[in-house]
């Protein structure tokens, strides 16, 4: 019977598993995770979680909701700043339109994408002061890279027929951009903007940690003073608002792409 079994060979998956297991064990030892912690940690988490109930919703409506609204506003302004900056950059980054410029633009956008927005906020806070304005600038600048890259990819995939048509009938380069390129790419680019808005809501929620406004600072303070019922209100309201915005924004994105 056993002769019928296919011969197993030691493939890349086995080697990869061994390497990953070794890295994992090394990491556990490096952060001094003792086997005893395995038993202790779930208990600690459960104990703290039990303090979260019931949530202090009065605090939620008074203090948390305005902070969440501020996070939404930060994300909106940040996304808008990024959208305005990235649209021309995306045009220059499209290798089919500007073969020489595209390389440089793409390199810069790749570098800025590696930057977590919270690190940018660390620089903007001293410049424009503590508060949501610094957060919006950080979100805006850090979103430019990704929107430029996605926008350039959309523009690279367009149909060149309309451009040739505009130029054949005597239109300038600018006219070709306005009447042949933009109408083709705008729906998809707007969909990317909305998607980035969804990501930026989450990003702006944590900016409060470095004093750049929004709901993150509220959560940090409630946890620091161990007001777990108030922290629970932050979590509940954040989850509800983010889910709602994701649903609405996702629906609009589907409508734009399908129309």
């Amino acid at each position: 019977m056993s002769a019928l079994k296919p011969q197993r060979e030691i493939g890349w998956a086995t080697w990869a598993s061994v390497i990953i297991a070794a890295l994992f064990v090394w990491s556990l030892m490096a952060i001094q995770f003792a086997p005893a912690d395995m038993i202790q940690v779930p208990g600690q988490v459960a104990r703290v979680l039990s303090f979260f109930y019931p949530a202090d919703m009065a605090y939620g409506w008074d203090k948390v909701l305005p902070a969440i609204v501020e996070s939404i506003q930060i994300a909106w302004v940040g996304t808008l700043v990024a959208a305005v900056l990235s649209l021309p950059l995306a045009l220059f980054g499209a290798s089919t339109l500007f073969p020489k410029l595209a390389h440089g633009v793409k390199f810069i956008s790749a570098t800025t994408r590696a930057f977590p927005e919270i690190l940018l906020a660390i620089y903007f806070v001293p410049i424009v002061g503590l508060g949501p304005f610094a957060g919006a600038l950080a979100i805006g600048i850090s979103s430019v890279g990704m929107l430029t890259k996605l926008g350039a990819e959309v523009i690279e995939s367009i149909d060149f027929g309309p451009i040739e048509a505009v130029e054949a009938s005597g239109g300038s380069r600018i006219a070709a951009l306005r009447y042949a390129v933009l109408p083709q790419v705008l729906p998809e680019i707007v969909a990317h903007w909305l998607f980035r808005f969804e990501l930026n809501i989450r990003a702006s929620a944590v900016l409060g940690v470095v004093g750049a406004g929004g709901v993150g600072g509220v959560l940090l303070n409630t946890l620091r003073y161990r007001h777990f019922d108030k922290a629970a209100a932050v979590l509940v309201l954040t989850i509800i608002v983010v889910l709602a915005i994701d649903m609405i924004s996702g629906e609009i994105r589907r409508k734009i792409i399908n129309s």
Partner: peptide
């Protein structure tokens, strides 16, 4: 799954740092 996705990474970090104390274990969780 959808609820897990709504909270940003640093929120989880704050929660676990409160639960198990400051340090890398909280970050790993």
């Amino acid at each position: 799954m959808n609820i897990l996705r709504t909270l940003p990474d640093l929120f989880w970090a704050m929660l676990f740092a409160t639960a198990v104390g400051f340090g890398p274990v909280a970050g790993a969780l």
